Each structure stands twice: as C-alpha cells, then as structure tokens.
Simulated assay, not measured.
Amino acid sequence: MKSFPVNANPKVIQYYMEAYNISLEELAKKINAKNSSIDGIVKGTIKLRYVQLQKMAKMVEKDPLIFMLDKPPEDKPLSNVFRKLINSEHLTYKIMVKINRIKELQEVANELYNNIEKSIEPIIDEYSIKRDPAEVAAIERKKFYSYDEQKSWKKPYESFNKWRSALENKNMLVMQIPVDTEYFRGFSLIDSKPFIIVVNSKDDINARSFTLFHEYAHLLLRNIETGELNNEIEKWCNEFASNFLLSSDVLDYYTNKINDIDKLVKTISSKYKVSYSMIYYRLYSIRRINKDTYNAYISECSNSSKIVKGSKARVGGPPQEVLKKSAYGIPFLRAVIENYEKGNITIEQALNYLSTTYNTFKKLEESV
C-alpha cells in the first residue's frame, strides 16, 4: 500500500531528536528522506509520510501516534544531563534509548509500588558533602557486611550480587544495561522515587561493585545530576566507595605485609573482590605509590592491558529469565508480577515492562 502524508507535530519531533541525540543526518538516513528535505520535515514545512513516521517511532521505541500529539512532553530531555556526565562528546541515539528506557521504568515502578501500597522511600541516611567521605564510609559500612564476610565470598559475581541485594534491601532499584565502557560505567536517577542505580553490564565485574557504591554515595548526598560534572562531588563519591569496599585497616594490614606492588594489588583484589583500579587509587591516596606509578597504571588501563572487559556472550547464553533478573533486579520483577497477579496491569503491560515473552514471564513468576 502506498504511503500517505501525516500531520506530525514538528515540536514533538524536535523534542525526541534532542532527547535521543538524533542528528539531522541520522534521521534522514533512518527514515529514507533526502538531506535536502529533512530540515523541512523537522521544521514542519514538509509533511512526513506515514512509513517515515513509523521508522522514526521505531528509532526511539515509541508509538507512531506520539509524534502527532498537540505538544511535546514537559520533562527536560535526559540527553542534556548525560552529555556532560560521561567521557564522550556524543551519545548515540541507541544508547539514549536505553537511558530513557530506565527513566521510564522508574516512573513505572512508582506506579506499580503505589498500586500495591509499597513505599517508594529509600531506607538510607543523608549526608553533607562537607563530611569526611572516609568517615561516612565507615558509618555506612556497619549497616552492611563485615570485611570478613566480604573476604569469604568465593567469586566476584557472588560479591557483586551480595552488594546489589544489600542495596535493593534499602528500597532502591539496581538495574544493568550493556553499553561500551567508554561512555559510562554507571549513573543514578534520584529526581523521583524509587531511586535507581544503573550499572554498565559490559564493565569488569569487580569494577561494577565499585560503581554500585560510587552511585550509592550520590544517593547519600541526594545529589541530583544537574548536567554539571562537579569534580568535588565525584571525588567525594570515589573516596566514599573506595573506603567503603576497602578500609584503611584492611589496606594497612596488607601493605605492611607485602612490599611488591603487583603482588599486593593481586592479593587484595583476589581476597576482597575489588578492582585493580580501585586498589591503585587507594594506594595512591595513602602515598604508598607515587603519582607517576598511579598515572602509569591508568595509562595502561586506557590501553586495555589490565582492564578485564565484561565477559563475552557464550553460544546460547544464559536462560532469558536469568538475563531478566540481572537486568531489572528482583524488586522490580516482583512488583511487575504482583501487579499482574492482582489484576492491576495486563499481561501485555507486564511483557512490555520487562521486554520479554510470555514463556519467560511465566518462568519468572515461578522463580522470583
């Protein structure tokens, strides 16, 4: 059937182009429009064809009808924040789709929690950035596992999952998305509730534990990301996370026992399931190594010689229900399932929230 022109709202088109970092060239290519006409399409002087509208909607995973609304959403596009919070001048629209999806799931979680009368309030304290991050780390650490318990965990994945569950028990969500680590290792959304910590599932598993508590530090400060990369805040969060996962007492014990730096780092990493990068950071902070040694290691990391990338997908891979637990976390899965079982949402909504199939959803029902 031949396509027909549609009355799309140019302001809505412009909003989603900004929200998802879509350039004119990218849009023209994806919707098969001529470069000479794409500017007119965006400004509303040239009408979109329906087929082009469908392709545009597919780019941002939205219903085509959303581009025909009277006005764009009132929320400020997340792209304005994330452009300045990562080590990249440009986030691809595919990455922005994943980031905006997390924001949408935060809103979904808020509604799901209210439906089942579950509190959206995090069970955490609040601190001033004027407090010593090492002191705050020591206070917070007492609310979690001991260092002996941390050392008893056999594998890095066990360690990460223990920390993740402990944070989830404080009534927040922890989700994972796969993105190249050159863009970001994690972020947190705390402008609404429940709070969400997001970790990059492509990162080294030990590094992910550090990211969990770096973002937890942002929550403790109630630091809403405003788009300005505040070096003071980032340093505070790094200090908190590194002291939380590796106390001065533990560090002193091993530095007094082992002189060789490589052996020292490997020993601590193996016993406490923390990343090499974090250990080098702590050793530099206590002046156990000098700036040149620390910078040399960081430079080596940049060349990927000591950074262990996220494990490559095996043939077949884990079952889908396992992947969903890893991506969304148990609390969110339980909220979706409970709302479905109580008739608050349809099966179609449940499947959409979890981006899954009916068979996988039924397996999640049985195992969550």
Rank of each mutant, 00 (worst) to 15 (best):
D292S: 04
I298M: 14
K58V: 07
K193T: 12
P133S: 10
Q14K: 15
T211R: 07
V336P: 06
E366S: 13
D292R: 03
S209G: 15
S242P: 01
E89A: 09
K130L: 12
S277H: 14
V308Q: 05
Y183I: 06
E126M: 02
L91W: 04
K58Q: 12
N110M: 13
K130G: 08
R287T: 14
A327T: 03
G44Q: 10
F184Y: 01
S299M: 08
S247C: 07
F4V: 15
I86R: 06
K34T: 09
D260G: 06
P73E: 00
R83Q: 01
R185F: 15
D262G: 06
S23W: 03
D75L: 11
L246E: 02
H214S: 12
Q320P: 04
N359T: 08
Y276K: 13
Y328R: 06
Y284I: 02
N243H: 14
L219G: 12
S305R: 14
R164F: 05
I22F: 03
S247P: 04
E18I: 11
M278R: 07
V250N: 09
I66L: 12
R49Y: 14
P133Y: 02
T92I: 01
S79R: 03
S209M: 13
I46F: 13
I31F: 03
T357V: 00
R49I: 06
I224C: 01
K98S: 05
T267Q: 06
P318V: 05
I124A: 10
L354G: 04
Y254H: 13
K151W: 05
I86E: 01
I46Q: 14
E365Q: 14
K257N: 14
I268L: 09
K34Q: 09
F210T: 11
Y254L: 11
K76H: 07
T226C: 04
T211Q: 05
S119R: 07
P64K: 06
S165R: 09
A57V: 03
L220D: 10
L69Q: 11
S275V: 06
V42E: 04
S269A: 15
I124Q: 06
L351P: 15
N32P: 10
Y254E: 10
E228R: 12
K306V: 08
L246Q: 05
V322M: 03
I41E: 06
I258W: 00
S79T: 05
N35T: 04
C237S: 13
P72A: 06
V250G: 08
A109S: 15
